[in-house]
């Protein structure tokens, strides 16, 4: 077999693997290994890799058919999508994990400083509000407003904290959650993102046929929702509060006192 033919088969298998995202990883490895053996054996007999790959079928369609047949209903019936409530729960859980620290950590620090008087009155204000007051002060000064009260200084540790929290949110939403077939939220709510006929479909993990069924696949994870829903509501309320408090300093009467 030539190097080019070897590369063709590798590319073909990579396409099949991409299409199998969402199925259990061990299963995907098994399927790819099996197809690899088939292709190499057939090329060894027939000697024409291009013809073998053509006869095997389009890699995207092969992967799509494998995925479709693994989702429980018999032929002819639609793939059972997860309910809207369950999908929303997965998304809310991701919001809590991704954005929760940005909202909850400064609030918790504020409450702890207020309760213990640890860092003085200035530090009691959440870091986002302090930063927005700085930006607003610069903006209004540039517009010609005079006699504005100087905002409280943002200390180095607050800058560092803000950078870490923003960094986590960006990392979670752009790297960890994106391009993955199962985010933490989806995993926690027992969902999987699969690709069937070029459409991304979110299904319940237990609707994917597996033998033997993995431990806990059919078990409800209601306790996650019990924690995620109130925390999610708190996050939304804090988000509204912070957005308002960060916009408010830009209104001249507030900054002029």
């Amino acid at each position: 077999m030539t190097q080019a033919e070897h590369a063709d088969i590798t590319r073909y298998l990579a396409k099949v693997r991409r299409g199998l995202r969402g199925l259990p990883p061990g299963d995907v490895d098994d399927t790819i290994e099996e197809i690899r053996t088939h292709l190499y054996e057939e090329v060894g007999e027939r000697g024409d890799a291009a013809a073998v790959l053509r006869d095997f079928g389009d890699p995207v369609e092969v992967a799509s058919e494998i995925v479709e047949r693994r989702v429980r209903p018999d032929e002819g019936r639609c793939v059972p999508q997860a309910s809207l409530g369950r999908r929303y729960s997965a998304w809310a859980t991701d919001v809590v994990i991704g954005l929760g620290p940005m909202l909850l950590v400064p609030t918790a620090l504020t409450f702890s400083t207020l309760a213990g008087g640890l860092h003085g009155a200035d530090a009691a204000m959440p870091v986002w509000i302090q930063m927005s007051e700085h930006v607003a002060h610069g903006w209004l000064t540039a517009l010609g407003y005079e006699g504005l009260p100087a905002p409280a200084a943002v200390s180095t540790w607050q800058w560092a904290l803000a950078a870490v929290l923003v960094g986590w949110a960006v990392f979670y939403w752009m790297a960890l959650r994106r391009s993955h077939s199962a985010s933490v939220g989806m995993w926690m709510t027992g969902l999987r993102g699969i690709r069937v006929n070029d459409d991304r479909v979110v299904v319940r993990e237990r609707d994917i046929a597996q033998s033997p069924a993995p431990l806990g696949a059919g078990r409800g994870r209601w306790w996650i929702l019990v924690a995620a829903i109130p925390t999610g509501c708190l996050c939304i309320l804090l988000l509204i509060y912070y957005v308002w408090m960060c916009v408010e300093p830009f209104l001249p009467p507030r900054i002029l006192g």
């Binding site: 299963d27 399927t31 099996e34 197809i35 088939h38 057939e42 006869d55 095997f56 079928g57 389009d58 890699p59 369609e61 092969v62 058919e65 494998i66 479709e68 047949r69 693994r70 046929a209 597996q210 033998s211």
Partner: peptide
């Protein structure tokens, strides 16, 4: 009747169904 690749989805399903 179809491509050779169509056999593997069937095998995987038969296996998953025991």
């Amino acid at each position: 009747v179809a491509g050779e690749g169509t056999v593997y989805p069937v095998l995987r399903r038969l296996e998953a169904d025991g």
